[in-house]
């Protein structure tokens, strides 16, 4: 590992703080998913991904496809932190004229590999990239696709899983954010996905299940996927939606709204939601003392 686990934890937490600031500034957007995926984005961008933030067209770069485009605050915050663009630009999220559109738009921001938001089309694109890269016998960059559990309710997703399994796209890793929530409630109530791992296995994928907040677990699974031959890999990352802010954790009501716009029963009043979230993040839920105290 390039960084220690503690360093990675710190980076992920700074990314979470950025996410809260961005969402408050924007006044709309998704909160729970981005917070839940901060550790995985940190592991990818700071440990695993072959990329050059200053040279976004580098042909040998790994391709990262974000399928569930609505969690893009975590993508933008992580890209900025790893050097793709200046930190000050984060506050333009969702504003008129911004490169940080409400859902990621490739043509607006160098470093984005695709445009996404409508659910269920990321794995297809990633599989197309993996297939195309494999046709050229050059050194094969790897394709990483980040998806949500909810978008496995889209038929297109399973068409893509079937295609990647058939073609043994071993240069493709899909990471599923298994946070169990979606806009209308818990995935298992809205439209059950279990037995989830067995479904991927049945389509001839290699499946790894991990704790999506344990850096050793995350990095070892990401690296393991590179060593699997003849099969694409699916990493089912069990994550906590809203991770890092106790009153948001596991609560689907925080799926699609930012802090500060609405009182939610049992949570801090809207006026202090953001402040309270940032306090939790700065102290890692009270585990450490913060310089802000």
């Amino acid at each position: 590992m390039i960084h220690t686990e503690q360093e990675l934890e710190l980076i992920a937490n700074q990314i979470r703080e950025d996410i809260i600031h961005m969402l408050v500034e924007a006044g709309s957007g998704h909160t729970a998913g981005p917070l839940g995926m901060a550790d995985i984005f940190t592991a990818l961008y700071f440990e695993v991904l072959r990329h050059k933030p200053q040279d976004t067209n580098w042909p040998e770069r790994d391709r990262l496809v974000l399928s569930n485009g609505h969690i893009n605050p975590v993508l933008y915050a992580t890209m900025s932190k790893s050097g793709y663009f200046d930190h000050s630009e984060l506050k333009t999220l969702r504003k008129f004229g911004t490169r940080l559109q409400g859902h990621p738009e490739r043509l607006r921001l160098p470093g984005l590999e695709t445009t996404s938001g409508p659910l269920g089309s990321g794995i297809s694109q990633a599989a197309g990239m993996a297939y195309g890269l494999r046709m050229d016998s050059l050194k094969q960059p790897r394709v990483w696709c980040l998806t949500s559990d909810g978008e496995h309710q889209e038929g297109n997703t399973w068409e893509a899983i079937m295609f990647a399994g058939k073609n043994k796209l071993s240069n493709l890793t899909v990471v599923v954010d298994r946070n169990n929530i979606q806009i209308d409630g818990m995935t298992e109530n809205v439209m059950p996905l279990e037995p989830f791992a067995m479904k991927y296995q049945a389509f001839n994928w290699h499946v790894i299940e991990i704790n999506g907040h344990d850096f050793n677990d995350i990095i070892s699974a990401l690296n393991q996927s590179k060593a699997i031959f003849e099969k694409p890999t699916c990493i089912i990352a069990h994550t906590i939606p809203g991770k890092g802010v106790d009153y948001m954790e596991f609560d689907f009501r925080w799926h699609g709204i930012p802090p500060g716009i609405k009182d939610i029963h049992g949570d801090p009043p809207k006026e202090i939601q953001a402040k309270s979230a940032l306090e939790k993040l700065r102290t890692i839920n009270g585990k450490i003392r913060s310089e802000h105290e």
Partner: peptide, 25 residues
């Protein structure tokens, strides 16, 4: 080697094509 049978899956077909074009096809 440059022909890909996608099966009866038109949504996946165009989206895979988008991905392939992203890497120079």
């Amino acid at each position: 080697d440059r022909f890909i049978e996608m099966g009866v899956a038109e949504q996946n077909m165009v989206t895979v094509a988008s991905g392939m074009s992203a890497v120079g096809k």
